[in-house]
Design a protein around this nucleic acid. Structure first.
Lengths: 203, 203
DNA sequence: TCTCTTCTATTCAACTTTGACTAGTGTATC
DNA sequence: GATACACTAGTCAAAGTTGAATAGAAGAGA
């Protein structure tokens, strides 16, 4: 999974209706161009591809209000919303996704109900622990450590990053369980912190 | 930078002369197919591409000894070796590379002199600290934290992973400076320990 | 001996990603 | 009043990636 579909679907969904340039600007505004592959080409390609697959519908629109080339606007379909949620869940649980997918997932996490967010993050921790086990099992066979020479350092790195990832995830679970942020279907009732809603993402 | 060029160049270099299937098997044997994009298609594409660019030379060879289709063997050129070393250095210092590039870099780190390896890893630590600073600067503007709502969690994640990465790198620097492993131009003279001291996996 | 799987070795079409390019309009500069 | 620059909006060719397909020979069991 790459992060771009999740990001583009999420951007279109928040706008209700958007053309490529708006999506591009939104993503840039979120800083996404610094940590993910959100080049113009990728965005326009994703839009076209997802329209072809029925996740978006294209509405042809006359030349831009302020002049410039004509543009195509898109809206998300029901299937697109399903896909968005599926990608979001996947991004949150799977450890092998790169940082870009996870970052995007966190960005959209409040679009899920609080309980589900917590459940997914707990699953993430499980997956990380499982992965850690599989690495250490492979790393410490008969013959003791040191079998692998400097290659052992790679496994060391993986274990280290699995631990760090699990620790961060546990911290996030705690904060969410203690009422931080405003999730889907809530209206600030949980907010023990004066954290703003998604509005910091928009505009 | 993707890891595949580094891996393929490294594989060909170690063999002296190799065809695609050998490279594929070597990488699989190293476990690279589990943590990087080393599908057959990618490997053959990389070989052809790098041959076209003069990093490898192709030698046409008659059908395989044991039957099966004919195959093409490759050797690395001087420019290819330069490129290999450049990619290796890049993989070791830059923090934004994904884990696959770093893992490959660690796999080949002993192809550099010990002093250079240490210097590159120290540079890596610097880069990580720099990145951490840039994230926290952006994260803690006027108005205090909480400005970003749940988006702050993304920065939190980055800081956490920068710290974990720096910690692991410092550990590796220590081990290398204390004589672990055998590097380019050495012949086990540095080995103060018989086995590499990669002890504290159960951190 | 016939078939089924495995091993050797590579190719291919489809899809994704990248970086550069196009093109019109407003706005500031000299 | 010309020139440069920035903004809006998107296209395109080239490169990279994926998963499946191809195809001959060898070994293993019925």
């Amino acid at each position: 999974m790459s992060a771009i579909r999740l990001l583009v679907l999420g951007a279109v969904r928040q706008r209700g209706r958007a053309h490529g340039y708006q999506v591009r600007n939104d993503l840039e505004h979120w800083g996404a161009h610094e940590w993910s592959n959100t080049k113009p080409g990728s965005i326009y390609h994703a839009l076209k591809q997802m329209a072809k697959q029925g996740l978006l519908v294209a509405r042809e629109v006359a030349p831009s209000t302020v002049g410039g080339p004509p543009r195509t606007e898109y809206e998300i379909t029901d299937r697109g919303t399903q896909e968005f949620l599926a990608l979001l869940r996947e991004a949150l649980v799977s450890h092998d996704e790169k940082m870009d997918a996870l970052s995007a997932g966190i960005g959209f996490i409040v679009h899920l109900p609080r309980e589900e967010a917590v459940a997914l993050l707990k699953k993430r921790v499980e997956r990380l622990e499982e992965w850690r086990r599989s690495v250490t099992d492979y790393y410490a066979p008969e013959g003791g450590p040191g079998q692998f020479g400097h290659i052992g350092e790679i496994m060391h790195l993986w274990v280290h990053s699995a631990d760090a990832g699990a620790e961060w995830t546990r911290g996030l679970i705690d904060r969410i369980e203690n009422g931080a942020y405003v999730f889907e279907g809530e209206e600030r009732v949980h907010a023990s912190t004066p954290a703003p809603p998604v509005s910091s993402l928009e505009s």
